[in-house]
Nucleic acid binder design. Structure first.
Length: 507
RNA sequence: CGGGGCGUAGCGCAGUUCGGUUAGCGCACUGGUUUUGGGAACCAGGGGUCGGAGGUUCAAAUCCUCUCGCCCCGACCA
């Protein structure tokens, strides 16, 4: 029997998917658990990815007329109580500040003192406090639309956490806009959804499905929630981000009113939308393999890593001189909106070791340069979209000339691979038994990777949705936007339906 | 927050059932020698209050109680 190729990550995805995820995060040095339960430390490599996500999206928000601002971390409890559904949705996961200082407890420790007259909530989201400002800022239709975004941290006291996917504190971007008409607010909601989905496809190389959330899955207090869902390699769905049409609900709660052209005082129409550091988790589970992370070039902190190979000081000198020349040629180049990021890894470690470290971190292109390469004025290239040993030599000048093309090729390859995987695992189905079978693992004790996205008819009844969730732990991820009306029958109750929805297990 | 599992060196683990030399192993780390187009070999080292606090005992990583943390499943959620 052929010996299994040794992988950098154990367990493999097949062996234990959650275990693999955890090991990848560690091996790629993206983040670690902190001393504070449920919170993570995002390490430089992980934060570098976030910075690129941030920069890219920020440019896109600005280009569509949005401006950044910053609102307080603390929200007075009374603000929070204004929108009933909103309170209900978030109450269970709020961190509450009750005191303003500490004093000696008489036993060598400290105890909280200075009880606050009004308790403060650490923001789980900012609709209410931003709404309070908006109420002051808006008085005329001439003040609209108001297009604001903030980059911030938020806290949701989660019971079960996973690095990047769900932590007590996380980083995100929350857009909040105010409009004079329902239509304009709905257009904004959809425009942002498309912006997100395009970003996911073009930058994260992540295929996604845009759709609308059902009543039970929507944002607490929203009129409508739109989502873009991605498929992870364990065939579960991951909600990658959301865009909400809030109608006049929050305007009424926060008293955001304006005088229309006709001189009539009306409540405004608002939206909110956000993506979080969860996108990094999505990236890992969309492209990662048993050797670690695979980063899309357009979001990678480093595009090209150069590993010099030498045996003695003399070789070191010639190799490093050549590497310097290579670095100089590359570092002034541009790859899409960014400067090409080149990293020369001249640490005093063995070549193979360094190479594997970069494989695990997911750098798109690795160049190994030894004396023989220098003599031939060439480089030895490994690509993260190929096997670790599948390397090839080429003239240094050829590499420099083609590097952006190579990066684009990697970007395309990993998108295609993920897209093929997703498409292969989206199954249209109309039979209830087939549906149940699809979502039931063969080995109940130690469930194998199974299921996928089931495109099935739904009558629109919440009880059908609820039953599926109870029986199979499967939920309606979204009602896809891109579909034709089609006559069919609800996969649960058999009542007539005109649309298919995506059922899947999810994160 | 419920059910299950796990905390032993930086990482991965053995040892715990049935208490008993000086707590081991692999990788990593330090020094040396030899190697090297590539996840090196050999030699010699360093590093542990066995998650924490109590208790039982002549003796506790091992038994008991409590506690903290992590992982998986569930409920909840970006």
């Amino acid at each position: 029997m052929a010996k299994k190729e040794k992988t950098a990550i154990t367990p493999t995805r097949q062996e234990n998917y959650p275990g693999w995820y955890q090991q990848v995060v560690k091996a790629a040095d993206l983040a670690e658990n902190s001393e504070v339960r449920g919170c993570m430390v995002i390490k430089p490599w992980g934060y570098g990815i976030w910075e690129n996500i941030q920069r890219t999206l920020d440019d896109k928000f600005k280009a569509t007329g949005h401006v950044n601002a910053y609102f307080p971390l603390f929200i007075p409890k009374s603000y929070f109580e204004k929108e009933a559904e909103h309170v209900e949705g978030f109450a269970k996961e709020c961190a509450v500040v009750t005191h303003s200082r500490l004093e000696d407890d008489g036993h060598g420790g400290l105890k909280p003192a200075g009880k606050l007259t009004e308790e403060l909530i650490v923001r789980p989201t900012s609709e209410t406090i931003i709404g309070a400002s908006f109420a002051k800022w808006v008085s005329s239709y001439r003040d609209l639309p108001l297009l604001i975004n903030q980059w911030a941290n938020v806290v949701r006291w989660e019971l079960r956490t996973r690095l990047f996917l769900r932590t007590t504190e996380f980083l995100w971007q929350e857009g909040h806009t105010v409009h004079a008409s329902s239509q304009e607010a709905q257009d904004e909601t959809m425009m942002i959804l498309k912006l997100y989905a395009d970003f996911a496809r073009e930058y994260l190389a992540m295929p996604v499905i845009e759709g609308r959330k059902t009543e039970s899955e929507k944002f607490p207090g929203a009129e409508a929630t739109y989502t873009f869902e991605a498929m992870m390699q364990d065939k579960k769905a991951l909600q990658a981000g959301t865009s909400h049409f809030l109608g006049q609900k929050f305007a009424k709660a926060s008293n955001i009113k304006f005088q229309s052209k006709e001189g009539v005082e009306e409540f405004a129409w608002t939206t909110s939308w956000g993506v979080t550091t969860r996108l990094i988790g999505a990236l890992i589970m969309t492209h990662g393999d048993d050797n670690g992370v695979v980063l899309p070039p357009r979001i990678a902190p480093v595009h090209v890593v150069v590993v010099p190979i030498y045996r003695n000081e003399e070789e070191q000198k010639t190799v490093m001189a050549f590497v310097q020349e290579l670095e100089d040629a590359l570092k002034d180049m541009r790859y899409h909106e960014r400067a090409l990021q080149v990293k020369v890894d001249d640490r005093d470690l063995r070549g193979g070791e360094k190479v594997w470290e970069w494989i695990k971190k997911g750098v798109p292109v690795r160049l190994e340069v030894g004396p023989r390469d220098v003599a031939a004025a060439s480089v030895f290239m490994g690509r993260r979209d190929m096997e670790p040993r599948q390397k090839s030599g080429m003239k240094m000048t050829d590499f420099v000339e083609n590097v952006t093309g190579i990066l684009d090729e990697i970007q395309n390859n990993i998108f295609k691979k993920a897209e093929t995987f997703m498409n292969e695992n989206i199954i249209s189905m109309d039979d209830h038994d087939v549906f149940c079978d699809y979502f039931t693992p063969k080995n109940a004790e130690n469930p194998e990777i199974h299921g996928g996205f089931a495109l099935a008819h739904w009558c629109g009844d919440a009880s059908c949705e609820e039953n599926v969730k109870k029986d199979l732990k499967v939920t309606i991820r979204c009602i896809p936007l891109a579909q034709e009306a089609e006559e069919g029958r609800c996969i649960v109750c058999g009542k007539p339906s005109t649309k298919r929805v995506i059922y899947a297990k999810s994160y």
